[in-house]
């Protein structure tokens, strides 16, 4: 009987320790509660490791040339640097700029137009899109099931060697959820561990006055949809959110992106039309097109002197999180894939 109690206590302690150890995902101090429901998909090291392998494996694409990381590279805040519109198999080109991936547990809608209603469901779109990975979900499952690597990893993560759509998506979510960026200079300043330079400080004040309503701290976005006054590209004819809701009031509305790691996530806007932060700020001060659906927040013009533009830029650069950009736990899982090759 005594042994039983000791065993039970040991068990409880061990599982508590495990749960603590498992939290590759974490909620930074003073951040809001995540919207992702972790109860139906609790993150575990095995699940996140599987998700990471899948994220970096071109096996998800029809001709094994494109992985998630092709358009979401860690060193550029998990977006596709140098490409305004993202690329897919056979050099095909999509219609939108791939978004930077970070702090996804705090977002409930995905894609520039919010077409996707849950992080789990996001990966279905690029995997099946003919201009991205061009593969069917059943074919992906068959390939993974037949591989030497994956059935064991699925068993470790979900208790079964059977590769299902549910587990594929949940594993990818588990990895993506771990991509938390909250270690920038801005974060240190907020925690009183560092100080802004006078220029950054002035930039921060200007930011709060002019940008904060949409790019709300600490996530630097409300993740809502707005028309930010970009003239529609007459080649792409992309009207954003309206395609999803079929509501004319949503014409030209796009998801407000986070500004975290903006230094590394160029080009900017849904169609990647701007290469430099300078151009983005110029758009807000002098490029706004007044149409019916223009965001309320932009009805009064943003006025900035050229010095103020420089100061805001200095502040935006404090949102760079090098620990995130170079965290080896988010990188290509070299060891795992090398093992596979050696076999």
């Amino acid at each position: 009987m005594k042994y039983g109690i000791i065993l039970i206590i040991a068990g409880v302690l061990l599982s508590a320790f495990q749960a603590f150890r498992n939290s590759a995902f974490y909620i930074p101090e003073n951040w809001p509660k995540p919207v992702y429901n972790f109860q139906v998909n609790p993150t575990t090291p095995a699940g996140a490791e599987l998700g990471r392998a899948l994220f970096y494996d071109p096996i998800l694409s029809r001709d094994s040339t494109i992985s998630c990381a092709s358009c979401h590279s860690q060193y550029t805040a998990f977006t596709h640097v140098d490409h305004a519109l993202s690329h897919g198999i056979g050099d095909s080109i999509g219609t939108r700029n791939s978004p930077a991936l970070m702090n996804l547990a705090w977002q409930s809608k995905f894609m520039w137009d919010g077409a996707i209603n849950h992080l789990d469901m996001q990966a279905l779109a690029p995997i099946t899109h003919p201009d991205e990975m061009g593969e069917s979900i059943p074919a992906v499952l068959t390939k993974l099931q037949r591989s030497e690597l994956y059935p064991a990893m699925f068993r470790k993560a979900f208790g079964s060697r059977e590769v299902t759509g549910e587990y594929l998506l949940k594993a990818l979510s588990q990895f993506m959820l771990t991509l938390v960026s909250a270690e920038s200079k801005y974060d240190s300043v907020m925690r009183n561990q560092a100080e802004f330079t006078p220029q950054e400080k002035n930039g921060y004040q200007l930011f709060r006055k002019n940008c904060e309503k949409c790019h709300k701290e600490p996530l630097f976005s409300t993740f809502e949809f707005r028309n930010n006054g970009l003239p529609a590209d007459t080649f792409l004819n992309d009207y954003g959110r309206m395609k999803i809701t079929q509501n004319p009031e949503d014409s030209l509305l796009f998801k407000i992106p986070t500004l975290r790691n903006i230094e590394y996530s160029a080009p900017y806007m849904h169609d990647g039309r701007y290469k430099k932060i300078k151009e983005v700020l110029r758009h807000y001060t002098s490029g706004i097109e007044h149409s019916q659906t223009l965001a309320e927040e932009l009805q009064t013009p943003v006025v900035l002197t050229s010095n103020e533009t420089v100061d805001i830029t200095a502040f935006l650069l404090t949102l760079t999180d090098k620990k995130f950009l170079f965290n080896p736990e988010f990188s290509f899982p070299q060891k795992l894939f090398l093992q596979k090759i050696k076999k």
């Binding site: 429901n37 139906v40 209603n117 992080l119 469901m121 279905l124 995997i127 759509g165 549910e166």
Partner: peptide, 20 residues
Amino acid sequence: SGAMGGALDPSKGMYWTWQS
């Protein structure tokens, strides 16, 4: 509510991929 299993598994060909 995200990814589900069984009859609701998104690999059953009864889930839109481009729009959830």
